[in-house]
Amino acid sequence: MTTNAPRHIISLLMENEAGALSRVAGLFSARGYNIESLTVAATEDPTLSRMTIVTSGSEAVIEQIIKQLNKLIDVVKVLDLNDGKFIERELMLVKVKATGAFREEMKRMCDIFRGRIIDVADGSFTIELTGSGTKLDAFIESLDKAAILETVRTGASGIGRGDRILKV
C-alpha cells in the first residue's frame, strides 16, 4: 500500500456491542489496510455506534475495505463519504508555551485559526481548535516547534452534506 494513495473517510453504523470495535480494528490489521484515524461513539440511538475511519488506498483497496466492513455481522451500514460531498471536522487540544512575548503571539495565532484558549496557566495556554485535518496540521506548522508542549487530536468525524444521511 502506498502512502500517497487517495485518502478516504468511511462512516459506518454498527451495533453498540462489546467487541464490535475490535472486529473493525482487527479487520484493518489482518488485511493490512491503513488506518489514519478511527473515532467511535454511541449515537442518539444507544443501540448503535457511529464510527469514522480515515484510511487511504487505491479504488480497488477502498472497494475491498467497504465490502469487508459490510461483511462484519455487527456492521449495519457503511458509507464512503468521498463518494459525495461531505464535511469533516476534527478537534485538537494544544498546550503551548506562553511566556513573555510568546504570550501575545500565541493569542494572535489562536485568533487567526479561530481557536479558543480554554486553559491559562503562568507559563502556558491550552488552545482548542476545530477544523479539517489539514487546518489542524496548518496550525501546528505555523507554531514554533519548541513552543508546543503537548498535542491531542480526536481524529476526524465526518458527515455528508445536505440530504446525504447515514441512518438505519
Partner: peptide, 11 residues
C-alpha cells in the same frame, strides 16, 4: 454469495 470475493484479486 460474498460480495467481498468479487474483484478481490482480479477485476
Amino acid at each position: 454469495i460474498d460480495p467481498s470475493s468479487i474483484s478481490k484479486r482480479v477485476k
